[in-house]
């Protein structure tokens, strides 16, 4: 591979990183607000109530206003964190008419099919490892009900994990937004997540969600995109 070609790949990886990272920066105000609410609550009461989190709705709406591909944003609380709800989401969604509305999910474990968020990777990884995460690409059944990436940053107060500030990004939005970058690469290429599953690509031979096997990865050129997440740009041999 020529140096010139390598530069094209590296530039593409850099631009993809900027695109993916931008959504994380939007989450900071949400995470800060959550930290503040939990810190204040601990001064006079041991745990905040669900109602105390409702003030972040306006911030969640603002997150979505800043990126048209965002269809959901809010807080997802660590089980047992709140005084009045065992599991809880303070989540807003963008409706089809463009307005914002609360999203209620059935998180009650007594039901036979709850939205079992503590088991979901975008919650589990921040909760157990204290690091940020992007879940997916996945079809968010009973949640966003579309193919989605779920961004999540852990909120930690006084050393304890209290939940995540997160947002749902439409996969179709990222695909459109990254197409011009992906097209600069003159070989079959894909942005893959930590499971080697395709997030977006520039070739008809790959599909969203498809796992690129280890052998194929070894023969490909690989460039880090978001190192802490394990996301890479993979350029397959043409």
């Amino acid at each position: 591979m020529t140096t010139e070609v390598r530069h094209v790949h590296e530039r593409a990886a850099g631009e993809l990183a900027a695109l993916v990272e931008r959504t994380f920066t939007l989450l900071d105000p949400l995470a800060d607000a959550c930290t503040e609410i939990v810190s204040q609550a601990s001064a006079d009461a041991p745990a905040p109530s669900a109602r105390q989190l409702s003030g972040v709705d306006v911030l969640a709406d603002r997150v979505m206003e800043q990126q048209s591909g965002l269809i959901g944003a809010g807080l997802v609380v660590a089980p047992g964190m709140l005084a009045d709800e065992q599991r809880y989401l303070q989540w807003r969604q963008r409706r089809k008419d463009g307005s914002f509305a609360p999203l209620f999910l059935d998180v009650d474990t007594a039901g036979d099919d709850p939205y079992d968020y503590p088991e979901m990777e975008w919650f589990r990884v921040p909760a157990q490892q204290g690091r940020r995460m992007i879940g997916g690409p996945y079809f968010d059944y009973m949640g966003a009900e579309t193919c989605t990436l779920t961004y999540a940053v852990p909120v930690v107060v006084g050393g304890a994990f209290v939940g995540i500030a997160g947002a749902d990004l439409l996969l179709s939005w990222l695909e459109r937004a990254s197409l011009s970058v992906m097209r600069t690469i003159d070989a079959p290429a894909a942005l893959v997540n930590h499971e080697r599953r395709v997030v977006t690509d520039n070739t008809p031979v790959l599909a969203t969600g498809e796992r690129i096997d280890v052998a194929r990865m070894e023969h490909a050129h690989r460039y880090p995109v978001i190192e802490d997440l394990g996301w890479q740009l993979v350029v397959l041999q043409a």
Binding site: Q93, L103, F104, L105, D106, A110, G111, D112, D113, Y115, Y141, M142, G143, A144, E145
Partner: peptide, 12 residues
């Protein structure tokens, strides 16, 4: 009481 089930999400 288990008399209704609330499925949430967009089509809930």
């Amino acid at each position: 009481q288990g008399l209704i089930e609330t499925r949430r999400g967009r089509n809930g």
